[in-house]
């Protein structure tokens, strides 16, 4: 019972943070709302029994990535943005479209309760689901190749970012 209350409470906090993210005018407030979303997601993972994922969620997303977001906002000194009323197309097509997609996703999730079994998230596995040993077992045995390929992909992305951000050699000599 307490579990359910806590879970619902943090779902509400999470959604409220997400809505606040869109409503806030100042980028730094939006970024902090996103931190709240990340933090409450971590609590949800914890309540589901995936304590390792929860800790990583806090360390990586709330502790590193969002700090970089805040850093960039501070560095660029981004000011308040203007809110427009939104175009008529957005109101006529976008809103019903978004609602429809939400309904479809929710329906798919409710219908496919059996998919939890296919993923190995059966009540048996749930007891140990999401702890460090389980995740490393999956990551370094079953999914080793995709994992390594992804890491190369990330490396390429980092290289690309460095190449794009670095000033060309000619400019550097002048400066």
């Amino acid at each position: 019972m307490l579990h359910l209350i806590l879970f619902s409470l943090f779902v509400i906090i999470c959604v409220a943070g997400a809505v606040n993210l869109l409503l806030q005018r100042h980028p730094i407030n939006s970024a902090l709302s996103l931190v709240v979303v990340m933090g409450s997601l971590a609590v949800e993972y914890l309540l589901l029994g995936a304590e390792f994922v929860a800790a990583i969620q806090v360390i990586v997303y709330a502790g590193a990535i969002m700090v970089l977001f805040v850093f960039v906002i501070m560095l660029l000194n981004a000011g308040e943005e203007e809110h427009t009323q939104g175009s008529r197309v957005a109101w006529l097509l976008g809103l019903p479209g978004a609602l429809a997609i939400t309904v479809v996703i929710a329906w798919a999730l409710v219908q496919s309760e059996g998919s939890a079994v296919a993923l190995g998230v059966t009540p048996d596995a749930q007891k140990a689901f999401g702890n460090a040993a389980d995740i490393s077992q999956l990551l370094f045995h079953q999914f080793l190749l995709p994992f390594e390929v992804t890491s190369i992909l990330v490396l390429i992305a980092i290289m690309g970012a460095v190449v794009l951000a670095a000033r060309p050699e000619s400019e550097r000599r002048e400066g």
Binding site: A55, V67, N131
Partner: peptide, 25 residues
């Protein structure tokens, strides 16, 4: 005593940077 104790400490201290960053801004 939690079985991810070390990660909890790292996670919480990594959030501490917000205090410094936000006070500066």
């Amino acid at each position: 005593d939690v079985n991810i104790g070390l990660l909890v400490v790292l996670g919480i201290t990594s959030l501490g940077v917000y205090g410094v960053a936000l006070s500066g801004w």
